[in-house]
């Protein structure tokens, strides 16, 4: 009787070692200004930026929600606040960030279930995200002003 593990486990072990070697030897380019930005990368980084913006805006959104739900007076106060120019602009910017994050997120979910995973479809999807979010940004602007 041999004490050696089965061959498939041996090959698996050597494979992981090889993969580890590849990982440590992977080239790293940290200069974001020297790398190319295809449309898919732009859509991806904008998804991240909009996500961080929305994260930082969470307390503000909760504040307005709390005010609007607290009382009739609070509801009117929240409405009056959003009617002045600067808060309205901020409201529009956050709406744009939310709409963009939502649309780009839907593209991610579609890709997760297998749609648009090729390079061509990925580029087309990224362009669609830009067009759709620009359209909804304009619509949000029209609705707010």
């Amino acid at each position: 009787m041999s004490r050696k593990p089965p061959a498939n486990i041996l090959s698996l072990a050597s494979q992981t070692a090889a993969q580890r070697k590849v990982k440590t030897a992977r080239p790293v380019n940290l200069n974001l200004f020297s790398i190319k930005w295809p449309v898919t990368a732009l859509v991806s980084i904008t998804h991240r930026i909009s996500g961080v913006l929305l994260f930082l805006a969470m307390p503000l959104l909760l504040y307005v929600f709390e005010m609007s739900l607290s009382s009739e007076a609070g509801f009117r106060q929240a409405g009056a606040m959003l009617a002045s120019p600067m808060p309205r602009l901020l409201c529009w910017l956050l709406a744009v960030a939310l709409l963009y994050h939502l649309i780009a997120g839907c593209r991610h979910l579609l890709m997760d279930i297998g749609f648009g995973e090729t390079w061509r479809a990925g580029k087309a999807g990224a362009r669609a995200v830009i067009v759709l979010s620009a359209l909804t940004a304009v619509l949000a602007g029209i609705w707010l002003w």
């Binding site: 994260f55 969470m58 307390p59 909760l62 929600f65 709390e66 739900l69």
Partner: peptide
């Protein structure tokens, strides 16, 4: 800092 903000929003949002 982000965790504190997230937990604050969790409790605040839950109350609202």
């Amino acid at each position: 800092a982000c965790l504190l903000l997230t937990l604050t929003c969790l409790l605040w949002g839950a109350r609202i």
